[in-house]
């Protein structure tokens, strides 16, 4: 039986992952589902990249043994607990500490000197998922001696991810990779100084204390809530379609101080920005860009 199952899984994976195209009817149903989600709960996935969204929705449908996406919609409208599950599916993201170590190395060597001049530093992690990057940033700021004047706001729409982030507990079985990343990112101390462990998790909680704030924020539906000197929004926008990307870019741009910096994921760029969004290249290799400045909020 097992080998039959294996074959089935393999078949499922290959067909769904590579050649899945929703039928016209399914397209309509997905539209209705997303519309329903938005109108009922205010979660707006309408501007997400359709291909990956469809796959996730169909997976959830199959996992719940529902006959159609319309049945899924019905369930989501009447069952709050199911909504949580679906939301988790739709907003699931991969993240790790000091992801792309060269980015953090560049941040240290190039961005930090600018920040050092400021009396107060505000950093926003838009779409922080389970918080690994926010803690990484906290460590960088601590090592650079800027922790006292830095506030890091880490936001995500996924409540489950946020509560994990607040715990600051990351599984030991990923810690060796994180240590490697940390060292490659130019960490100046022994990584072990930042965590305590038990037999399962490494706890980073006390790294920044109250200066690391986790809050729920939906990039799609919520608006700007402060002005920041640095905004990190890495590997978030790839899930959004063009229009939504533009919208979020406007939001980010509006939330950046003059001369403020934005860090994107290694495969994201600032090409084709909406009107009024103007960035200069700061370190294009590491996808760090700078908001055009009229005054001098950040030194050149």
């Amino acid at each position: 039986m097992n080998h039959i199952m294996d074959r089935r899984i393999r078949a499922a994976v290959t067909t769904e992952a590579e050649t899945f195209v929703p039928t016209e009817l399914q397209e309509i149903e997905i539209n209705l589902l997303l519309e329903g989600l938005y109108q009922m709960y205010g979660y707006d996935f309408r501007g997400y990249v359709r291909a990956s969204l469809s796959r996730r929705i169909l997976n959830r449908m199959k996992a719940e043994r529902l006959p159609s996406i319309t049945a899924l919609l019905e369930k989501v409208l009447h069952d709050r607990a199911f909504l949580e599950r679906l939301l988790n599916d739709l907003s699931i993201r991969m993240t790790e500490m000091f992801r792309d170590p060269s980015f953090f190395a560049a941040f240290r060597s190039q961005v930090v000197p600018l920040l050092r001049e400021l009396p107060e530093i505000r950093i926003w992690h838009a779409g922080c998922a389970t918080g690994e990057e926010a803690y990484s940033m906290a460590i960088v700021m601590l090592e650079e001696g800027l922790a006292d004047k830095t506030t890091i706001y880490a936001t995500d729409m996924n409540e489950k991810a946020l509560s994990a982030a607040k715990n600051g507990a990351f599984p030991l079985k990923k810690m060796q990779q994180y240590t490697k990343n940390y060292l490659n990112a130019g960490g100046s101390k022994a990584f072990s100084e930042y965590y305590t462990t038990d037999h399962q998790y490494a706890y980073f909680h006390p790294v920044m204390d109250e200066r690391l704030i986790f809050a729920q924020h939906n990039l799609v539906t919520d608006s700007s809530f402060n002005e920041f000197h640095v905004i990190l929004c890495r590997n978030v926008l790839i899930y959004f379609d063009n229009d939504l990307q533009k919208k979020v870019h406007s939001l980010i741009h509006d939330s950046l101080a003059d001369g403020g910096l934005i860090g994107l994921g290694s495969k994201e760029s600032i090409l084709f920005m909406p009107k009024g969004v103007q960035y200069e290249e700061f370190n294009p290799q590491e996808r760090i860009y700078r908001r055009g400045q009229s005054s001098t909020a950040l030194p050149r």
């Binding site: 199952m5 089935r8 899984i9 499922a12 994976v13 769904e16 992952a17 990249v49 291909a51 990956s52 796959r55 996730r56 997976n59 199959k62 996992a63 599916d89 699931i92 993201r93 991969m94 590997n235 926008l237 790839i238 899930y239 994921g265 495969k267 994201e268």
Partner: peptide
């Protein structure tokens, strides 16, 4: 179900790659 969960996990991991390549 297990296989579906597995599939899902696999997909979550390949998701980003795909999204990136689409992008």
């Amino acid at each position: 179900t297990e296989s579906q969960v597995l599939t899902e996990e696999l997909q979550a991991q390949s998701e980003e790659l795909q999204a990136q390549s689409e992008e």
